[in-house]
Design a protein around this nucleic acid. Sequence first.
DNA 1: ACCTGAACACCGTTCAAGT
DNA 2: ACCTGAACACCGTTCAAGT
Lengths: 232, 232
Amino acid sequence: MAAKRSGKQSKRSPREVVPLPAEPETRNEPPLSLERIVATAVELLDAEGIDGLKMRRLADRLGAGAMSLYWHVGNKEQVFDLALDSVLAYREPSQMGEPPGWRGDVVHMLEDWRAVMLRHPWSAALLPRRALGPNILGRLELVSRTLSEAGVAETDLNVAIWSLWNYVIGATVTRASFDLSDDDRAAAQHRLTALSEHYPTIARARLLLDSDWDGTFRKGLDFLLDGLSPAP
Amino acid sequence: MAAKRSGKQSKRSPREVVPLPAEPETRNEPPLSLERIVATAVELLDAEGIDGLKMRRLADRLGAGAMSLYWHVGNKEQVFDLALDSVLAYREPSQMGEPPGWRGDVVHMLEDWRAVMLRHPWSAALLPRRALGPNILGRLELVSRTLSEAGVAETDLNVAIWSLWNYVIGATVTRASFDLSDDDRAAAQHRLTALSEHYPTIARARLLLDSDWDGTFRKGLDFLLDGLSPAP
DNA sequence: ACCTGAACACCGTTCAAGT
DNA sequence: ACCTGAACACCGTTCAAGT
């Protein structure tokens, strides 16, 4: 019926071949802290995906007793919230050339946004279920201010921001989920043969195969910006 | 640090006040079947959210022994996959007025898509982690065919479809996640006072407050379609 | 072919206690 | 203030067995 994706077993194979013995945490660790916990959680998520983040495993990696985390964190949910937002910290671009104008700024911010989330694919899957942390809000603020200063009318600002936001989130979420699906090429290939019969148009366009993700992202973004641009 | 959202406890309160005693499943049930399992899973997800779907609970609701599901399903993951895709079945519109042309068709399909997912908010949160089932692919095919017939060039088709898809997914995911956040008004309000200082622009635009979601969705969609329209 | 309960492994979290 | 292990509740899944 539904396209399968090999639930538990195949996941993100390369990293799991060697079970990584939690590192030789012999030398005494620095004391536990929210920062260390969050940073290590991000590491774990990068290496093992969402389901790989277990409180005990996280504590292990930190060289701490299994339950020590709960003095700092209160919740596993909170770990997710903090990890997600921490990854989305925005670093101002290191001054590469002249300021390219508001449109270039916006494109840069949004491409950076997308790039960060693709570097941590779990973040895209996590975002829909989490609250907006300060870094996410900070990015929103930055885009908003840029658009506002560029002359987008107050009344159009919400439409503009949400349209862009929606687009970026959607593009990232989609892209990340395709990366996962491709884990098992076999299934994907099988799905594609079935496709040619039932879904001729997308099969013909090779929609699922050779999409130019980056280029597509950029083009759709340009369409939106065309529409949103303040009247000159 | 990160904006909190009261992890487990507040969830979707109204439905949990009465613990609903699994219904008086006295009369003998129809036999188990994939269809019944999936339909009941959707019920459960609607009522209790993603975390509310437990295999035992699902079996209970079906009046079956706890482990009977595993003859039909193999996996909890598979239940998720099937539930997601089942919700996205597309029913052709019941002939309301004249055919409004390709653009109207596309708008209708995408608004329907979004509406369905908003009716089952868990679906938006689930989508990023799941494979594309036949119904999802069917919807993609329908949009693709419409655009293709409308004269969108073969080379632009992928850009067109992905841009629209990204936009719809993003809009839905965002909207659904905001509905959840609003569960606890207190926290949201508190967040907003902090906002006015740190995020003046989005606070001024009241971005998080009185956004006209439906209108915004439609406007952004129109911008995209403007850009994607085949040259006349 | 279809369903079942007992049992296992695992995991988040509480708690009472340590330093 | 900070960390800990034992213990509990819960849940997905295996298995050997029923009909």
